[in-house]
Design a binder for these strands. Sequence first.
DNA 1: AACGCCGTCAACCGCCCAATA
DNA 2: TTATTGGGCGGTTGACGGCGT
Length: 383
Amino acid sequence: MGRSPCCDKVGLKKGPWTPEEDQKLLAYIEEHGHGSWRALPTKAGLQRCGKSCRLRWTNYLRPDIKRGKFTLQEEQTIIQLHALLGNRWSAIATHLPKRTDNEIKNYWNTHLKKRLTKMGIDPVSHKPKNDTLLCGDGQSKSVANLSHMAQWESARLEAEARLVKQSKLRCTSSTEKMVGTIEPSSTTSHKLLAPVFESPTRSCLDILKAWNMVLGNKHNDVGSGNGNGDGDLESPTSTISTAGVRESSSNFFQFVAGNSSGSCDDRNTGEECDQEWECKDENQMANSIQGFNGVSMSSTNNNEDNHQHMPSGNFLESFTDLLLSSSSTSNHRDLEAGGESNAVLEPNEVNDSNYDDDNNNNKNYWNNILDLVNSSLQDPPLF
DNA sequence: AACGCCGTCAACCGCCCAATA
DNA sequence: TTATTGGGCGGTTGACGGCGT
């Protein structure tokens, strides 16, 4: 189909916005709302195209935008979500309150990507660059199945992101309530994805369960493979290319399990954090392990059973802690082997016993995340 | 002081999708 | 059913500033 660019008209200004233009746009939106973006520029007296106005508003002028440096927590969230979702910046942005997709995208491209590369991690796949762990037949089949789950989860998160944004438009004065106040949608796609709004953390639950299932089956060597009977999960979102998501999903595991990101203070950013990411001391690890093991290890699949065991608080915070502590317990060897600043795995360093140990730890790791997720269903997260 | 290199980030571009006529 | 439109998304560009030579 295609459409002509909205900024083709002669006389429309391009390039950086002046304070006067900002003021005009702000004043107009505050008084009238944005309404139709195409009609807005003439009504507001701006020599800009509607698209330019919309971008200026959403990425810069909106009052609920947080500017300035990203905290370590935010960085970790971005990395984790990127491992799961890939370059779905808008979906990632929905989990980082007050950050725009554009800002996150820029931050990823200019900071995080380089940092991961420096650590010997492929920023696209989130794998250690020489990784060979998932080449085994059984594991690869499980991962392939799991990728369908990741695909489904990814699609759901995407839809969630869209609807949250719609909700924001409707509730510009009270963004904090946006998820809870989403109106029932009449569109078919929204009906399909309605369960998304049970809770944002519910979105994480399925994929975490899936991981747990795969790791559990791998470890126990269950013949049927994946707990879904025939071992071939049909993707409910068949129109979506599986390649990217498959990569992302398996890599999420790889990143979490194979790479340690140290816990540095939120005040530290940039290069300071680079250092600490690469140099996690053993005491910290031991403490993390203790905290990690302190979490209930009950049933992995029954949500109801787990609620009473769980710590309360910010799910994402706990999730991040788990990522850090788990990666320390099970895989810090890998980083040590690879050196501090170039943690590249040597293929011949991956032997069978290490592999089994790692899978034990990873199983526990995901069990614990499941517990946290389950608890968060009762205790709504902040994002 | 002049120049080049590099990192950052606001803004643009082209495409896609859902809604609607 | 098809064409059109509006809005959104992700990739890319280019202006700008800091830094080193």
